[in-house]
Design a binder for these strands. Sequence first.
RNA 1: GUGGAUGUAGCUCAGCUGGUUAGAGCACCAGAUUGUGGCUCUGGGGGUCGUGGGUUCGAGUCCCAUCAUCCACCCCA
Length: 433
Amino acid sequence: MQVLITKRPRGTEDILPGEVEVWQFIEKTARDLCREYGYGEIRTPVFEHTELFHRGVGDTTDIVEKEMYDFEDKGGRSITLRPEGTAPVVRAYLENKLYTKSQPVKLYYIGPMFRYGRPQAGRLRQFHQFGIEVFGSKDPAVDAEVISLAANFYKRLGIKSFDVQINSIGCSACRPLLKEKLHEYLYSYQKDLCKTCLGRLDRNPLRIFDCKSQVCQKIMASAPKPLDFLCQECREHFDKVRNYLDVLEVTYSVNPRLVRGLDYYTNTAFEFFAEGIGAQNSIGGGGRYDNLVETCGGPPTPGIGFGLGLERTLLSMKRQKVEIPLDKTPDIFVAVPGGENNDLMVKEAVRILALLRKKGFSADKDYMQRSLKAQMKYADKKGFKYAVIIGQEEIDRGFVLLRNMESGEQREVPTAEIASKIKMLIEGEKING
RNA sequence: GUGGAUGUAGCUCAGCUGGUUAGAGCACCAGAUUGUGGCUCUGGGGGUCGUGGGUUCGAGUCCCAUCAUCCACCCCA
């Protein structure tokens, strides 16, 4: 059991230097985009009262039924590590009375989510989502904005191949009729449905559209579709969303079988797909939730948002071999030969190192008592652009040696001019490519 | 929660039907006449063979359990 302290919990990941830069790139892309679109960041706790998710996500969802990371705290409260971002943001919207501010309220978040299940490709117990929520507006142009923001996110990350699918699942006025017709239709095929769908028949017949079983697919092919039962208002809303998407030049397809897993969705539903995530191919999704705020005890407030899986985004970037423009190589390594007067030289090295860093260079020195040769080898492996070599001879004459690690070219530079000299060289390189 | 595969050095793996001090490549460290990298050569450190039981004179090699990883299902991001 002792070994547990050297092992991360199942379904979690360490993100190390080398990999973390990609995460920073993804996060920066999201933040830049949100700033451009006028979304403000919100940071909510990673845990909430369990009840929030029962109410907000829905008791019949798998997330709540079997995937929640819940526990009792020392005060006897039932606490849950958030499995998704929308319910907490709705809670914060209400608790902070954001409905009293000018509407719409446009928010975004980036952070870890938790779901208890067996890990596999593209599925972890702690994973990360980038999400946005818009409160207070029913304007179909908002639906289109939300969808296009997500599409632009993927595009800007360099993911060339992904699909946008949209659908409308109606509102509280027209959905009951759909459910009734669907129910009626499915009852005649009751004995042919797969086991899981049989269970869904009464609880959530819409989900049967999602089933991968051949038989169910065949049955659903001619089942009543949500789009056929939309009320006038929903129909118009959906048409306008599509028009705006065309204006925004977002390529999408309508998938009449697209239904989302969470209970709170109404009207517009959408999902993003890409290859290379194992058996999973959904990299994000969202939709409108015009009743959720009220359900959670707030004033009637329409809302819409998405949640995008960052691990899955990353996987599809890797799959599509996206090149990320990152300059990770450090600038200057300060090397010191061993031998007599080493103390003196090291002091000078420490002084120059501090100076270079103050000037904004990424600079380092040896801390392993390595020979000069080993220091050079280290500098090479780490990809330093320049080496500054400080020896007794040079100190005496007020010079240091400046070596270009790529070309091997080496020259003497007066110690006082070292920073400006390197700056000139590095900037010159950038200009010359 | 269900099913399948796997678990030997930091990494990728070898180790025949159980038998002396468990190997290779890469990585790491050091040296090749003593102030300098990228090639080459030489040497070195490092392994409770996932863990715990069992069978056996003897197990990395067989059996059981357990944990973990990977993959798939359910479902989702």
